[in-house]
């Protein structure tokens, strides 16, 4: 579907995303008292990119190299049987693993909370973190599970008919968060 057919407008542009991530990086440092035992795990594809960006910022601010990786949740989804089998994303854990550490899960959009539930299950199979926190660039509401984010880039009230699309430089050639209203046909 093209942007012409649907009304799309950017809710966040490049500089906004930049500022939001900078703030989240500071908040992680503050809440975890210096991010000593933190591991950043992104949910592919864009969550993994965001996790890397957060790690870069933390290194910039405090000179600390936080272990960063990705955790694919496809095999743990609860809606697998509703759609054709999907290709898998990449799971890359830091060499020291997640045992005893504070894992910060990173995703681009927090919506129903089902992705995060799947991520918690996946995490359970790769180790036993001391604590798990959640960072998201956009929280668009409409939770279907008792899950909330610890770090939010932007709270974005949406209707269920709308779509939120995150574009990132590394994968999409530009930074933007679009709110897409689907026209009734």
């Amino acid at each position: 579907m093209s942007d012409v057919q649907n009304q799309a407008h950017a809710v966040l542009e490049g500089p906004d995303i930049h500022r939001a991530l900078t703030r989240i990086a500071h908040e992680i440092l503050e809440r975890t008292k210096g991010a000593e035992s933190v591991v950043l795990l992104g949910i592919p594809t864009r969550g993994a990119t965001l996790a890397r960006r957060l790690a870069e910022r933390i290194a910039q601010f405090e000179g600390l190299k936080v272990p960063v990786g990705s955790i694919d949740i496809t095999m743990y989804r609860d809606d697998l049987r509703l759609r054709p089998a999907r290709p898998l994303g990449r799971t890359e854990l830091p060499p020291d693993g997640v045992d005893g550490r504070t894992v910060v899960l990173v995703d681009d959009v927090l919506f129903s909370g089902r992705t995060v539930r799947a991520a918690l299950d996946a995490l359970n199979d790769v180790g036993r973190p001391r604590a798990v926190q959640l960072a998201t660039l956009v929280d668009r509401g409409h939770r279907e599970l008792p899950i909330r984010a610890d770090y939010v880039g932007k709270n974005l009230p949406t209707s269920k008919a709308e779509k939120v699309k995150v574009y990132l430089e590394e994968t999409d050639g530009r930074d933007a968060v679009l709110l897409i209203k689907e026209e009734a046909r």
Binding site: M75, L80, R81, R83, P84, A85, R86
Partner: peptide, 10 residues
């Protein structure tokens, strides 16, 4: 996985 993992094969 690709044959059985979804509603239809991938």
């Amino acid at each position: 996985y690709l044959l059985l993992g979804g509603s239809e094969p991938a």
